[in-house]
C-alpha cells in the first residue's frame, strides 16, 4: 500500500520543479556565500573564491530567468496552465485549513482539513490540487523570484546603476536589497524541505513532486462505502522517523533563526564608515547557525536528487511490469494483483 496517494504533478512539472530547485539551491549557495562570507568562508573557497562564486551566481541567474519565463509562457499558452489558474487562488477554505491545522496541533481537531492534507490516502478525491501551504509557496515564491530577478538584473552591471543614480554608493543599496529579499525565500525553502521530507507517511521524501501523475495508479474505493479515515493507520512508521524528524526539525528552526538574525546585522547600506570585518557581529553561535541553515538546504538538494532516483526506479519497475507478460519465453508468469 505504498501508492495510496494520487500524484499531483505532470511530467513537465516534475522536471521543472527539479530544475528550478537545483538552480535556486545553486543561487542560494553562491549568493549567501557572498552575503555571509565570514560565516561561510569555506563555501566561498569551495566554489572558486570571489570570482568563481559570482560567475556561478550569474550563470544560474540567467538559468532562473529562463525557467521563470518558460513557466509563465507555458501557463498562459497551455489549456492546462490556464485551467489550473483558478485552482491556485487562495480562498476561505485555505484560511479554514490553517485554523484547523492550529486546532489539530492543539489536539482539538481529529483530522487535518482537506486543503492542508499532504497525505490524502482514501480521501484523495477531497483534496484540492494545492494545499494552503502549496498556494502560499506559489504566490510568495512567484513574487520573490520576480523581484529577485529584477533586482539581480539591475545590479548585473553596477556601473550602469551608478550612472543612473549619479553616485557609486546607491549601487550598494541594490545589492543589499537583493540579498535581504532572498532571505525570505531562503527561510521558506528550509521549511519546504522539512515539510516535504519529514511527513511521517512520506519520509524521507514526498514522491508526489518527482513521480508524475501519469505514472501513479489511482486508488478508488468501492462506490457504496465511503472510508472514514485517510488510511494512514495502515502504514508503518519508519523506525528512524522519530529521531531524524526531531534532529531535522531542530536544525530547520536553528537555520531559519540564524539566517534571520544574520540578515538583520549584516548591513550593506548605508555603507558603514568603519570597516567592519564581515559587516556584522562575528559570533561563533551565529557562524554555526548559518552553517546549519546551509546544511538544511544541502539535505534538501540531496532529497531532490533522491526523489529523481526514486522516479527512475519507479519507471523501471513500471516498464518491467508492462513487459512482463510479453517477454514470456515459456517461463513462469507472475500472477498479477489486479
Amino acid at each position: 500500500m505504498s501508492n495510496l496517494d494520487h500524484g499531483k504533478f505532470t511530467r513537465v512539472t516534475t522536471l521543472f520543479h527539479s530544475l528550478l530547485g537545483l538552480d535556486v539551491f545553486l543561487l542560494f549557495f553562491t549568493g549567501y556565500a557572498i552575503m555571509f562570507n565570514d560565516e561561510l568562508w569555506w563555501l566561498l573557497a569551495v566554489m572558486g573564491g570571489a570570482s568563481g562564486v559570482t560567475a556561478i551566481h550569474r550563470i544560474t541567474g540567467i538559468g532562473l530567468i529562463a525557467l521563470i519565463v518558460f513557466w509563465i509562457v507555458l501557463q498562459i499558452i497551455s489549456p492546462t496552465g490556464r485551467g489550473n489558474f483558478s485552482e491556485i487562488l487562495p480562498g476561505k477554505d485555505d484560511f479554514d485549513a490553517f485554523v484547523q491545522d492550529v486546532q489539530f496541533m492543539l489536539g482539538r481537531a481529529d483530522e487535518r482539513h482537506p486543503n492542508a492534507r499532504q497525505f490524502a490516502g482514501y480521501k484523495a478525491d477531497e483534496v484540492p490540487l494545492l494545499s494552503y501551504i502549496g498556494k502560499g509557496v506559489v504566490f510568495i515564491f512567484s513574487i520573490e523570484l520576480t523581484l529577485l530577478a529584477i533586482s539581480g538584473l539591475l545590479i548585473w552591471s553596477k556601473t550602469g546603476l551608478a550612472a543612473m543614480f549619479q553616485t557609486k554608493a546607491a549601487a550598494m543599496a541594490f545589492v543589499t536589497f537583493h540579498g535581504l529579499l532572498g532571505v525570505i525565500m531562503l527561510m521558506g525553502v528550509m521549511f519546504h524541505v522539512f515539510e516535504h521530507g519529514f511527513h511521517p507517511a512520506f519520509y524521507p521524501v514526498e514522491t508526489k513532486a518527482f513521480i508524475p501523475r501519469s505514472m501513479v495508479p489511482e486508488y478508488h474505493s468501492d462506490e457504496d462505502e465511503e472510508p472514514d479515515t485517510t488510511g494512514i493507520e495502515r502504514l508503518s512508521l519508519s523506525p528512524s522517523w522519530r529521531t531524524m524528524s526531531s534532529i531535522f526539525g531542530a536544525l530547520t528552526v536553528i537555520g531559519i533563526v540564524s539566517v534571520l538574525i544574520g540578515s538583520i546585522f549584516d548591513e550593506g547600506y548605508p555603507v558603514p564608515r568603519e570597516l567592519a570585518i564581515g559587516g556584522g557581529p562575528t559570533s561563533i553561535l551565529l557562524t554555526i547557525g548559518i552553517n546549519v541553515g546551509i546544511l538544511v538546504l544541502g539535505v534538501g538538494l540531496v532529497l531532490s536528487m533522491y526523489g529523481n532516483v526514486l522516479r527512475i526506479r519507479w519507471e523501471r519497475q513500471m516498464e518491467e511490469e508492462r513487459e512482463g507478460p510479453a517477454a514470456t519465453d515459456g517461463g513462469r508468469e507472475e500472477p498479477s494483483d489486479d
Binding site: 496541533m105 515539510e195 507517511a201 502504514l235
Partner: peptide, 15 residues
Amino acid sequence: VFLHWAAFRRLADRM
C-alpha cells in the same frame, strides 16, 4: 515549521 512538526508527530502516532 512548528505547526507542521506538531501535526507530523500526531500523524506519526496514528501510524
